[in-house]
């Protein structure tokens, strides 16, 4: 059992939780994830570690209420317990050979982009952050991101906060303006990562994307998280979650992500009491 030390609502859909897990906190690195199970009849879901403190022995997660499990997790308050919490899983993000980096986060992806930006900025690198949201009410981690980046650019689809437009618009503008990035890290909806990768390919800038597909065990056992990278099948849980954005088959991945969509929707609606 893993105690929730703190919880905060970052916006109407996104929740932050700090979880007491000293052994995970001792070992984890940015880019790694945990798998949790809320209760005995619950699913196992992967969530990327958004922050950690080795001395205080906690790791934090940020999740969006999208399915039954995340709605169930949302019912837990500070002091409550999560039944199972296993990690750190996956390979930590590589930070070698980088000096000028652009970290692009889309929606919930900002939760995962944040620890990466924080680590790279802490290493003394030039780190620009482009954070994209649908509208102003969904913006989160703005102050934390600002503190941990050289420049922070906020984009919203409707222009209610920051600049209006997609993250790719800002990224293109910065590249064209001579930002001279050696690496772009894109984390967010698959479709966003796809278009960021298409853009950076034109400029031949190394691009890393982070995958969060369907998985059960997170140790390479089920193969549910497989995706095609450079024509080869890879398991996101053990070979990733980071991959070369110029080599990932994003369309195939989007298809696989829809695997249980109908069943998920049904369970979720039942849980929320929606007809």
């Amino acid at each position: 059992m893993y105690r929730i030390l703190e919880r905060k609502d970052l916006n109407s859909d996104v929740v932050y939780m700090k979880v007491d897990a000293p052994a995970v906190a001792k070992k984890c690195e940015p880019g790694q994830f945990i798998i949790l199970r809320v209760d005995e009849t619950g699913e196992r879901i992967p969530l990327t570690i958004s922050d950690y403190n080795r001395e205080e022995g906690w790791v934090s997660i940020i999740f969006q209420k999208v399915g039954k499990t995340t709605y169930l997790l949302d019912t837990l308050q500070q002091g409550d317990y999560i039944l199972d919490f296993v990690g750190p899983l996956g390979i930590a993000s590589h930070t070698d050979n980088m000096s000028r980096v652009c970290v692009v986060g889309g929606g919930l992806g900002c939760a995962i982009a944040y620890p990466q930006a924080k680590k790279l900025f802490g290493m003394g690198l030039h780190v620009d952050v482009i954070a994209g949201f649908r509208n102003k009410s969904l913006v989160f981690l703005q102050e934390e991101m600002k503190r941990n980046s050289t420049n922070y650019y906020l984009m919203t689809d409707d222009g209610t906060a920051g600049e209006k437009g997609m993250v790719t618009k800002k990224l293109k503008e910065l590249i064209e303006g001579g930002a001279n990035y050696d690496t772009v890290i894109a984390i967010g909806p698959v479709v966003m990562m796809k278009y960021v990768s298409l853009l950076t390919k034109e400029y031949n800038i190394k691009t890393i994307v982070s995958m969060n597909p369907i998985m059960i065990d997170g140790t390479g056992m089920c193969g549910g998280c497989r995706l095609t990278v450079d024509g080869q099948t890879k398991f996101a849980c053990v070979d990733g979650p980071d991959f070369d954005g110029h080599k990932v088959d994003f369309d195939g991945l989007m298809q696989r992500l829809s695997m249980y969509k109908e069943q998920e929707k049904h369970k979720c609606n039942l849980f929320r009491g929606i007809e």
């Binding site: 009849t41 699913e43 089920c222 193969g223 099948t233 696989r256 249980y260």
Partner: peptide, 30 residues
């Protein structure tokens, strides 16, 4: 990698460990 192709490990783990045969569990299966 089409939807509907599984390793036996995934299929059986969903059924056994995650009890997809029991409607009171949240585990989806296809």
């Amino acid at each position: 990698n089409l939807n509907g192709v599984f390793s036996a490990n995934e299929f059986l783990t969903r059924v056994n460990l995650m009890k997809a045969y029991d409607p009171s569990y949240d585990t989806p299966i296809y």
